[in-house]
Amino acid sequence: MKNNLNSIAIRVDDLSFHYGDKNVLQHVTMDIKKGSFLGLVGPNGSGKSTLIKCILGLQKPQQGNVYLFGEKINKFNDWEKIGYVSQKANSFNTAFPATAFEVVSMGLFGRVGLFRFLKAADKRKVWEALKSVNMEQYAHQNIGELSGGQQQRVFIARALVSDPMLLILDEPTVGVDTESSESFYKLLKELHYNNNMTLVLVTHDVGVMTDYVTDVACLNKQIHFHGNTREFETSSSENISAFYGHHVHVLHHDHDHA
């Protein structure tokens, strides 16, 4: 098991979670390999965000375990290795007086540590992160004065600023226009190839996603499918439709929808 864990970024082992008496996750078990780019899909309310929160230690499952980079979650300490953009990132207090630069710098706080301050090198990192999402010209604007898509890019920059080994994004392109979301997916692909970053992307864009991800997992309280993208595509649309409970067209953005 220990050997096995070396190549695994996230291991979820027989995890069950309920809010009160409402079952949200049941016996979820999966391994996410280092260097993979996983698309996590499932209908609304299927427990995707909850699973992500359990993986990040923001929610405590009633049963089961999570291991990050081989370490049991309650012993895991390298939180700066992990970047996270939450689904509700765009529902923050928009009147909050913080500049884009200040928001991105929060991503470094885990690394900088208690009682210490951002150094010049940290500030350079913040600029780089803003540049990587094309937002450097908005650095000194208040976050609330940016458009929804621009805000989302700032949150992505915040997740990237600490050079994470694992990046988890919960529906990051909601509210982002098609062109930006495409360039965003390209950015993710680049990060994945160049930095050998492990990525987990929660999304409803089943078609677009399959052009970028290496693996797909379908969740609806339980894991219904987990395999590489080719297997997912050949597993035929009936499976996916059955899983979503209604008919789904898998559409690629270079195709016409039938």
Partner: peptide, 22 residues
Amino acid sequence: FFMYKELFVLSFDEEQGRLSGI
């Protein structure tokens, strides 16, 4: 002065704060 970072991130987004190990 010494808790500025922590107070700032907790005020903006408690989840991010907890992720930073605060």
